[in-house]
């Protein structure tokens, strides 16, 4: 554990709290892509199957439980409790175009070819693109509420901080995982355009609005 990973995990946790709090307080999931949230639930489910097979630390176990529980809670809020506010007309990204290639790639490029490992690899690949339905939704409506922008910024920062963690770990322990690194870089690059808009607009008190 180093400061980069810890702040990365905290950014991830903060993103989830921002999202749940926004939906709960406003009693609405307007502007939130249910499809991205379904993909994240799939990511955590396939990655954290190792909860029952391997133990790393109480911290890891606790965080895995939190990520799993909150991802399903988010889906419940979007698709059940506040279903009427779900903006499904703008949430039209075809998620099979992300799930199937991620699965195919996981079957081809992995560290070991066994069930748990392929699912772990699938979760890494899928996570790198899971935000696309949400970004697609923002681009389709041309704007995002500030709170949604804060959520996206925290969520994007998390993997960017993990990249610093991986550089640090390589320098200090010689540890590296190419699959996670390449996917993490792809994931962070996907947020770059958003990061630019966030820094130039949202932080200056303006609404995140895309140029027409």
């Amino acid at each position: 554990m180093n400061i980069f990973r810890l702040t990365g995990d905290l950014a991830h946790l903060i993103a989830i709290i921002i999202l749940l709090h926004k939906i709960w307080k406003s009693r609405s999931c307007a502007g939130i892509s249910g499809k991205s949230q379904v993909l994240f639930a799939l990511v955590y489910t396939t990655r954290y199957l190792d909860l029952v097979t391997s133990y790393v630390s109480i911290y890891n176990t606790f965080m895995k439980f939190v990520f799993l529980a909150t991802s399903y809670a988010t889906i419940y809020l979007i698709y059940v409790k506040f279903k009427a506010t779900y903006d499904h007309n703008h949430d039209t990204f075809r998620i099979e175009f992300l799930i199937l290639p991620s699965l195919a790639l996981a079957l081809l490029i992995n560290h070991y070819f066994n069930f748990l490992e392929v699912l772990w690899t699938f979760s890494i690949y899928l996570e790198s693109v899971a935000i696309l339905p949400q970004l697609f939704m923002v681009s389709k409506t041309g704007e995002a509420e500030s709170i949604t922008s804060h959520y996206l910024f925290a969520l994007g920062s998390y993997r960017a901080l993990y990249i610093l963690n991986w550089i640090y770990r390589y320098a200090t322990e010689g540890h590296y995982d190419l699959i996670a690194i390449v996917a993490g870089v792809v994931q962070t690059v996907l947020y770059c355009d958003f990061f630019y808009l966030y820094i130039t607009k949202v932080l200056k008190g303006k609404k995140l609005q895309l140029p027409a």
Partner: peptide, 10 residues
């Protein structure tokens, strides 16, 4: 266990 060493992150 090799797997533990590989995936000790979240």
């Amino acid at each position: 266990d090799v797997r533990d060493e590989l995936h000790d992150e979240l």
